[in-house]
Design a protein around this nucleic acid. Sequence first.
DNA 1: CACCAGGTTGACC
DNA 2: GGTCAACATGGT
Length: 211
Amino acid sequence: MFKDLYNNLFDHYDDLQWWPSESDDETVIGCILTQNTSWKNVEKAIETMKKSDVITLNDVRTLPVDKLRELIRSSGFFNQKSIYLKEISNEIINNYGSLSNMKGRNIKEIEDFISGIKGVGNETKESIMLYALNYPVFVVDAYTFRFLERYYGLKFTRKEIRKITEEEFPDVNSLKNFHGMLVNLGKDFCRKQPLCNSCFLRNSCKTGKKL
DNA sequence: CACCAGGTTGACC
DNA sequence: GGTCAACATGGT
């Protein structure tokens, strides 16, 4: 169902090598910080953290929450995100010791565990599963819902999107790239006409933006 | 000035 | 089950 779409996107974007980060720990941190926030603001926050040598989940775990809150200020929602970062770092380290110890386990066990962490909703969970832990889980975000509805003229539920994508693209690299391409597509078009079929995958667009 | 960004929570129905 | 305000910074 989505294979043609994937191939069309791939022709334009190629392999995007998502998620942009230098480590699995940083991926998890980015997953929390990017909640309803532009990636630019997240990059600033991560840079600020790095300057204070806060790089790993264990660094986050041992840092006082007040200090952490100031480091991530630029990412917005810093009061709740600083708590979320402390929560997920504590949970992962206390229960598994590290992210690498969570890899290769029963997928449902890990998905249920992550779901139980405060501050981790569906999309954050899916992002961590796919990009930090390499489980074959598709990430369904706001761009995905908006785009698929316009592109196919159908409304999809999260469950449906995950079922279709995970059956059609069982390899994690395709799932990673598919989500990354959809995010880039969402950024390349304005919100009011994000999916503009008349311009999708063409050189010009009525909105004035180009793909 | 208004609106949005790679969402989540808790309250409410 | 679904809906909704609150959360906060930085860019356009």
